[in-house]
Amino acid sequence: MKRRVLILAVASLLLALVLGQLNHYLAMWTVHVWCGGLFVAFAALRFGYGAGALASFIAGLLLDAGEPVAFGTQAFLFLAAHAVIFKVRARAPRDATIIGVMAALLANLGLFLALSFLRIDPNLKADQAWLRIFADLLASQVVIALIAPWFFAVQTRLLEATGTNLRDFSRRAF
């Protein structure tokens, strides 16, 4: 379990780096992408509960470390999203990439709105705030739709390269 969690943490680190660089360039146009759902989807769909939850939690802590939120905010949001996806995953062919992309998009939608409600100052102009939030959300969803298959493939290859067979987890509930 430790090795699987470590591999997913390395993959999350890679994704955080890629998104950080993307946001660095997008800052010129005041656009920001936040792909929290992508950090959670693979672990929730393909892993057992313990390893997947721990990997999602670590990914949240990685994001929390550099951002002005209470440490653990995004980690617990990820853990909640993981629990929801894990609960409903038996109803869909969860090995399929398209299901993974859909799960990442839906999780990101929920997480993005939850984080917005937590972070937006109610004293600021609400119409401008939500206009900006929806613009960022749209950009984030487009980026997830584009890079999710690549990221799932990276995670699968990393796990295969270290001798982890994902089929072992496909029939397990916990």
Partner: peptide
């Protein structure tokens, strides 16, 4: 790094 989100 530059980080220009709607939150911060």
């Amino acid at each position: 790094l530059r980080d220009f989100s709607s939150w911060w």
